[in-house]
């Protein structure tokens, strides 16, 4: 197995699928500024996916472009974490999902700037600058909503209760991670989780929210086993390329 290709697809699919989810808010944001914010973040994420999947295609060496990889795979070949494919629901759910993800991506990109793989380090350095903006935005909203009205508090608490079971998966490791860690291409998942936990606890505390104590956690996205939501995302994401193969504009 080409472990670097596999890892890049996981990393790129997280950006691609969450970017697509956020783009669904275009024209539906609760206020104009948030409509623009979410679509800007979506644009950053799709841009990151472009760089990552382009590099994945080069690493694979089979002549696939970033577009081929993004638009012409089957569901089982997508390796994003289950968290990012969860539905937008209300604005509170979207911000909670975003915060749990941004709090993971910031320390991840910080680690990857030290990667022995130069191109991955370059992508991480670029993406890190954007992710800092994203994290500030989502963390401030989680605090504002959690420590807001009874209604907003209850809604984000319920969002946290529903999404918490998808968070452990962000830190699960397998033979792909072990191989790349041995080569100095990626770094310790435990350290990553420690940074994430510290950030998450701090923000949820300020937001007066309670971390649910459910022990059971979902798993499967990194192996291509998805929730029922991904199929619907792909139906929309891939529509043009499936209906008009090879279409360009």
């Amino acid at each position: 197995m080409n472990t670097l290709f596999e890892y890049l697809v996981r990393l790129g699919d997280d950006s691609l699928i969450l970017g697509h989810r956020l783009s669904e808010w275009c024209g539906h944001g609760p206020i104009l500024e948030e409509d623009i914010a979410m679509t800007n973040i979506a644009l950053d994420l799709v841009g990151q996916a472009t760089s990552i999947l382009k590099y994945a295609g080069e690493v694979e060496g089979k002549g696939r472009s970033e577009d081929d990889i993004a638009f012409l795979r089957y569901e089982r070949e997508y390796k994003n974490a289950l968290l990012v494919e969860q539905p937008n629901d209300d604005f509170g759910v979207t911000m909670m999902r975003q915060f749990l993800f941004d709090a993971f991506r910031k320390p991840l990109f910080e680690q990857l700037t030290q990667s022995s793989d130069e191109q991955l380090a370059a992508i991480a350095e670029k993406s890190l600058k954007e992710t800092k903006y994203h994290l500030k935005h989502s963390a401030e909203w989680v605090i504002r909503l959690g420590d807001g009205t009874d209604e907003s508090h209850d809604r984000v608490q319920s969002a946290l209760n529903d999404l918490w079971r998808y968070t452990d998966e962000l830190f699960f490791t397998d033979e792909v991670d072990a191989d790349l860690e041995a080569k100095g291409i990626i770094f310790s998942s435990e350290e990553l989780k420690a940074s994430w936990s510290e950030m998450v606890k701090n923000v949820l505390n300020q937001a007066t929210l309670t971390i649910p104590d459910n022990g059971w956690q979902h798993d499967g996205g990194r192996r291509g086993l998805h929730s029922e939501h991904l199929g619907y995302i792909l139906a929309e994401l891939q529509y043009m390329q499936r209906a008009y193969p090879g279409m360009e504009w």
Binding site: I36, A37, N40, K136, H137
Partner: peptide, 13 residues
Amino acid sequence: MVSQFGSTACKAH
């Protein structure tokens, strides 16, 4: 500041 995200990725409003 109205919003840290503006008309393009590089601007705030």
